[in-house]
Design a binder for these strands. Structure first.
Lengths: 249, 249
DNA sequence: TGTCGGCTTTGAGGTGGATCATTCATCAGC
DNA sequence: GCTGATGAATGATCCACCTCAAAGCCGACA
């Protein structure tokens, strides 16, 4: 997390392609100094994706790795009969490329217009081998993802629908605050209700109903359909942790 | 997985502490050559644990890392009201120490008499920094765990109780075959029904009933209470993947 | 051999969340 | 303004799985 390593981020040469990148502060490449960053940057390119379009599909050859710089990505797995599980949502600064074997384990689709840095996996791996600090950061990212996945297992295995929804909003809020380095009660929802449902192991109807319930309990408010205001963080936290003795009538 | 790297495993000095270790073939330390293995070995010690006893608890300082050499470990998370999620089961060769921050994210308890190698985290981290091949193997383990966690998320979020149980047995079988480097239709269950239930997001009663159902469908057989014989691997696989049009009456 | 205690199995009944169907709101195109 | 498309909210019904309770089973130990 908090890294005190000296980096030369501010004084990138004017016109450096990474110059205006908001994501670098929290991204993998944030551990690189200016020259290494330039070298890495030259190994790959960028990619733009419009909402709803797939970056890759489950089972595709994983020939590239990605860093998200703008927008949001939805990761999904499918069962043969069409049941879908959303494995997670990726935001600027998140790395997409920790795969076992050479196939993607899930499908990645853009939720809105999205920008990414893209690197051929072989070249990226070479570069990582030559930069232990990057390798260590990659490992840290993997450990972070693993911890998140384990929290999600607890959620899916043992939490009630209301607890899941509360956890979800708090998690989104935390990620957006880390990204913007600011605190705000407002949380953007770039995904639709069905995506939330498939992420939380529920149906969109349940999400809708529970949302109404949380609103009625004054725990949150819908600013627009795709932005919530968290009105009662302690209350939501208690609910999310499973400490609430159920929702009052 | 399949590593063709030349290692000198067979010709360890007689009396080397790792000489008789069955786990080394699949463990982290399997990538080290003889001298490095000896060095690592001297950094730590071993620990024995009898069934039911905890290695550490959720929230404890993560001052040590472990390698399981014998037995089995159950990893759990608790909700304040007592609901429990089993995060996974660890067997010989598995590494216990991929943590974010300095606190354990789950409790680890022995299922039966269990032996581990133990290393102080600080010294282990130092050693890893000096051995890139170990660092890479550690990353591979993390990626592997992450993939497993994601598969479990799909299971918990979208699979039926029968599909979960079938997936569980197939996964256990695969892990035991990898460990013994042999194929056997028999799968040992070092954990009790309640553990299986808490792992699969079900109740012990449901596990018990579904077990009876799978038996009746001739998909498996209980050799003893703690050992199943998988009678129909294709059938179980179809069921586990969600391809079965439900269980026949 | 008996009996004690823990784990597993079985049974009966309840319910949370799913499913299906409908309604409502928003928006684009004309 | 009308029409059709898309996503969200809501209502009615149902079922997979849970809860609670009571055997059944088996190893441990005297």
């Amino acid at each position: 997390m908090a890294s005190a390593a000296p980096r030369t981020l501010a004084d990138l040469p004017t016109g450096h392609p990474c110059g205006g990148c908001d994501a670098r502060r929290v991204a993998l490449c944030g551990v690189l100094d200016c020259t290494d960053l330039t070298t890495l940057r030259c190994l790959g390119g960028t990619q733009a994706l419009t909402g709803g379009h797939a970056l890759f599909h489950e089972g595709d050859r994983a020939s590239q790795v990605y860093n998200i710089t703008n927008g949001a990505i939805r990761l999904t797995k499918l069962l043969p009969d069409g049941r879908r599980q959303v494995m997670g949502f990726m935001f600027p600064g998140d790395f997409l490329g920790i795969t076992l074997g050479d196939e993607h384990a899930f499908t990645a689709e853009a939720l809105g217009d999205t920008l990414l840095c893209r690197f051929p996996r072989a070249r990226f791996d070479e570069f990582v081998e030559e930069h232990p600090e990057l390798e260590r950061e990659l490992y840290r990212k993997a450990a972070h993802e693993l911890a998140a996945a384990q929290a999600q297992m607890l959620l899916l295995g043992r939490k009630s629908a209301a607890e899941r929804l509360a956890s979800f909003f708090l998690d989104l809020a935390a990620r957006q605050q880390r990204l913007t380095a600011a605190t705000s009660r407002f949380v953007d929802l770039p995904m639709c209700r069905a995506d939330v449902a498939d992420y939380l192991g529920l149906t969109k109807e349940t999400v809708s109903r529970l949302l109404a319930q949380l609103k009625q309990q004054r725990l949150l408010r819908l600013e627009t359909l795709n932005q919530v205001e968290l009105l009662d963080l302690p209350g939501l936290t208690t609910l999310a942790e499973g400490g609430a003795d159920m929702l009052a009538a």
